[in-house]
Design a protein around this nucleic acid. Structure first.
Length: 119
DNA sequence: ATGCTGACGTCGC
DNA sequence: CGCGACGCCAGCA
């Protein structure tokens, strides 16, 4: 995963980069919006990562947005899926336990792109 | 064109 | 230790 030069980066690239990173998340692991934001460069706010997820619905190939949660491991974006249960179900199907809209053992399942990827 | 809002995160009080 | 405010980038009224 090569880091794109910020000067040559366009907004389309930003969305693309976010999607790329999310797609690289191993099955059964999760990451946070902030982690992705930092991976792309501190300049990119975590909020914008959320917007990228919002736009990821029509992205191809599909983006596993359900593996992205906030820094507390809460499924803050579940309401933006086709159904509120979709996110939780998808996670459970991958072996991730979800309790009260939170990822169980989030710290252990956390997947840091900056640490796992080569940049 | 301006301003508010949003799937967040951090710092300040 | 809990709550509030600000910053960040992009979309929409």
């Amino acid at each position: 995963m090569a880091k794109v030069n910020p000067s040559t980066r366009t907004k389309e690239d930003f969305f693309n980069l976010v999607w790329q990173v999310v797609r690289l998340i191993p099955k059964g692991r999760v990451t946070s919006y902030g982690a992705i934001a930092k991976f792309l460069g501190t300049g990119s706010s975590a909020r914008t990562v959320g917007w990228a997820m919002n736009a990821s619905h029509h992205a191809t190939p599909a983006v596993p947005a359900h593996r992205v949660v906030n820094r507390l491991g809460m499924l803050s974006g579940k309401h933006h899926f086709s159904t509120p249960e979709a996110m939780e179900n998808a996670l459970k199907r991958e072996g991730i336990e979800v309790k009260d809209d939170k990822v169980v053992d989030f710290a252990k399942l956390f997947w840091d792109p900056g640490k796992e990827l080569d940049w």
